[in-house]
Design a protein around this nucleic acid. Structure first.
Lengths: 273, 273
DNA sequence: ACTAAACGTTCCGATATCTGGAACACGAAC
DNA sequence: GTTCGTGTTCCAGATATCGGAACGTTTAGT
């Protein structure tokens, strides 16, 4: 028998450029190095065709090859493209509105996060009006193992992928609460997966308690986290749980925005002529 | 007169697909809607050409149009592509973590390099927190003969291959320390090979001293370099040598990551045949 | 050491796509 | 009505893609 049959649907596309984009989507889903042959098996495209495509991506810096010359991985230019894209998202305005509303409702600072390069990236943030508050700016990064969103991202990964990531990531301690033991972290992640939400109970910054959920994505793993952050002086786990319904409502709203960024332009198939 | 002058003149690219990717990069940086004409002004591409490109992106769901039919925004498929890409970019994440730890340990900026197209490419970089520092961004390139990593890459090449490469590469001088004499460079490379590490003692930028090693690859030549870079004000060759053990430990960790990222080598359980 | 298989790479004629100047279509402003 | 500014279409020449076949090279098998 051959390898696992990954639902190879023969890259769709009416034009070469569209086929290349479809290829990029396949590549985007890889969390390991890949070879020309593995892509042939997966996509069903002829080898010379794929060879040319990968060569183009490589020579433009979107991909890079390992020393053996057979394995490809994502290049820095591709990564930069993805980050730029998310940071400048046009629907940011709509999401920002949801965030503002949530802050109004729960009275604490909230933020939207994404996973990027194994770290949690702050995409947007709205501060509470309360005088005592943490200031964390958009664009900054936080390790995954000690942030509420990060634990959610970890919880939705395949076990093998998570293990590969965590094996080489030092679980740096920041506070007395930081989970630095791999087994304790794994147990916490299991809890997080069951519950569907995560706490950060002074695990990164002393005095900072967070609760987070993911914006649900029916088509696969989510890369949008939504969190409430507050000083322990005003927030406990119980109080945070009381905010959970509001948080989930906001997450649902953001998921809707992500899905259909704008009113009724759903007919993308009939547009062409 | 018009708007800010981004002065990007022309989208680079030898092939249609590469030009389309370059266009995507411009689009990725937009934080608001854009029109065909605005892209014409910004990129200098002919209108029909751009029209076709945008049409392709739209009909594949990467872009979508507003109700007015003239304004474009990023489509859900493009956003999903970016999210998927970052979600699965765990190799980079793991390497970045090692880099961060190394920077913590030695207190100076460090970076990961690869050989690409006869030049040294900066894959990733973490800056020291010290106020005085060089800023060199990931994605930039440096000649091989005047960088520590570059000399290591040269040192592991077969003599014939190295000679072929160097013969057609002018040894451009950047500072008074740059090795511009082929024989001097050849001698330096021999030293580097014996030692297993390399210095860059103000050979590229005045005031910048580096020490580098390769991430060992038992199966052949390595294409991953790891370097510490510091201003001479804080760094000497002796001090750099004191960092060597930490540097080598980090290089070993990165080698392990690279090894684990190879598909199918991880599951030893698979019954061969 | 030798053979066989697997993989990456190159070749090339047929085909499809891209290119971009010019012209057309539509709206808004005057 | 005219004149912009803009999106769209046309089309012939230039260019890139396509993919079967053949070629090197590396890996696995004996």
């Amino acid at each position: 028998m051959t390898t696992h049959r990954t639902d190879m649907s023969r890259l769709e596309g009416d034009t070469p450029a569209q086929r290349l984009l479809a290829l990029l989507e396949v590549i985007a889903g890889k969390d390991q190095f890949f070879t020309l042959q593995s892509m042939v098996d997966e996509t069903g495209l002829p080898k010379p065709t794929l060879h040319r495509m990968l060569q183009q991506l490589e020579s433009s810096g979107m991909l890079q090859r390992e020393a053996d010359g057979r394995h490809y991985s994502k290049g820095s230019r591709l990564r930069r493209l993805a980050e730029t894209l998310l940071l400048n998202d046009t629907v940011q305005g709509a999401r920002h509105a949801v965030l503002t509303e949530l802050v109004d409702e729960v009275g604490e600072s909230c933020n939207i996060t994404a996973l990027s390069g194994g770290e949690v990236l702050y995409l947007d943030r709205v501060e509470t009006s309360a005088p005592l508050r943490f200031y964390l700016h958009p664009g900054s990064r936080v390790p995954m193992h000690c942030s509420a969103s990060g634990k959610l991202f970890l919880a939705q990964m395949a076990p093998a992928q998570r293990r590969r990531l965590l094996d080489q990531m030092p679980l740096q301690g920041f506070t007395h609460n930081t989970l630095t033991d791999p087994e304790a972290l794994e147990a916490e992640i299991e809890t997080v997966r069951r519950q569907g939400y995560a706490f950060d109970d002074e695990e990164f910054l002393p005095g900072l308690l967070c609760i987070a959920v993911l914006a649900p994505n029916p088509e696969g793993p989510s890369n949008t986290g939504l969190a409430i952050q507050a000083p322990v002086m005003r927030m406990t786990r119980d109080k945070a749980l009381a905010c959970l319904p509001a948080l989930q409502r906001a997450a649902e709203a953001i998921a809707t925005i992500n899905r259909e960024a704008l009113p009724d332009t759903a007919d993308l198939a009939s547009a062409n002529r």
